Amino acid sequence: MQSLQDRVVVLTGAAGGIGRGVALGLAAAGAKVVLNDIGVSLAGEGGDASAVEALAADIRASGGQAVANRDSVAGAASAARIVQNALDQFGRIDAVINNAGNLRDRFFFNMSEAEWREVIDVHLHGSFFVSRAAAPHFREQRSGAYVHMTSTSGLIGNFGQANYSAAKLGVVALSKSIALDMARYGVRSNCIAPFAWSRMTDSIPANTPEELARVEKLKRMGAEKIAPMAVFLASDAAREVNAQIFGVRANEIFLFSQPRPVRSVHRSEGWTPESIAEVAMPAMQHEFYALERSPDVVNWDPI
């Protein structure tokens, strides 16, 4: 089904893993795709354009329309060039899928300023800059779709990823703000938390039997499984879907909750530190969330 026939989609982080699967899914759905990837490693090393160029060539050879782009998402000017590339090549833009990512895993107490900033720049700033560049065009045509990749590292938590977790939870808040600000123009914004084996998950440490078992499970979750949800959210079939957070894990689709009050306590005379300790906390503690990581919460076998 050509659900994106003649629609123009910008996809960042397109060259490998989840990005490649989404790119092929978009092309199969009839989209004209700007494939953005700077061609560096997760650590920011290298600069090889061959993978994204080859992907664009493969799509064109199969009868699709695609162009490769190597501008960085991490700067406003370069992100604007990505969107302009879509306009120059295809005359319009209909959807943005923010998938570009990197990792600088380190325990919080050892994390450097550079490791913090480099991850925030790509995931959070990059999602903002590319989305912001597309916004005037979406407003003018009174249509458009944003799809942002978040992570359960931000939604739930994980070891050694303060930078990545903060960025990915920030992406959720960014998506909600975009949805609120752009709904009047017929523009929607949603998030996907993908579970898939890719370059990002390939860096997960596997030093214990439990970690090895987790990695083996992840290896069975193909990156191509994320594509159908991304294609759906970019298409008109999702016109009534806005400001949501979905998870995709092999053949499972999740809808994630969003923060809402779960319990309140009231004291007519107000609170003191002592009464908070004696009354408020005991009343609320049964609703406290445990100190859990993503694999502690999503702990069942999807296969």
Rank of each mutant, 00 (worst) to 15 (best):
D48P: 12
V9M: 02
N98S: 08
V298R: 08
A173H: 03
N207L: 15
G16S: 13
I156L: 08
M182R: 05
M200W: 10
V279L: 09
P273Q: 08
N110Q: 15
R260G: 07
I156G: 05
M281Q: 13
A66P: 02
N251C: 03
W197S: 04
L218T: 03
A162F: 03
G144L: 04
L42N: 14
Q84C: 09
W116H: 07
I178T: 03
P136D: 02
R293E: 13
G63P: 00
V96F: 01
D105R: 12
E216S: 15
A213I: 00
A49M: 08
Q2W: 00
V215P: 05
M221C: 14
E216R: 15
E210G: 08
R104N: 15
S175Y: 00
A135R: 07
V33N: 02
V298S: 09
Q89V: 09
E240W: 07
S189D: 11
L212F: 08
I18P: 06
R132P: 06
D121P: 05
P295S: 01
A135E: 06
Q285V: 12
V52L: 13
G46T: 01
I97T: 12
L103K: 01
N251W: 06
R60E: 07
G19H: 05
Y146D: 08
A79Q: 00
A173Q: 03
S268M: 11
T150D: 13
G270I: 12
A166H: 00
A193D: 10
L103I: 11
A29H: 08
V248L: 01
S41D: 14
F159H: 11
A167P: 02
E240Q: 12
A280Y: 05
A213K: 03
L218S: 02
M281R: 15
A166F: 00
A61P: 05
A74C: 13
S165I: 01
F108A: 06
A57C: 09
V171P: 11
S203R: 13
E278F: 03
A166N: 00
V8H: 07
A77K: 05
Q141W: 13
N163H: 11
Y146Q: 11
R239W: 04
G157R: 03
G186E: 01
N69V: 06
R188V: 06
E269C: 09
P136A: 02
K168D: 10
V215S: 03
G170I: 07
A145C: 13
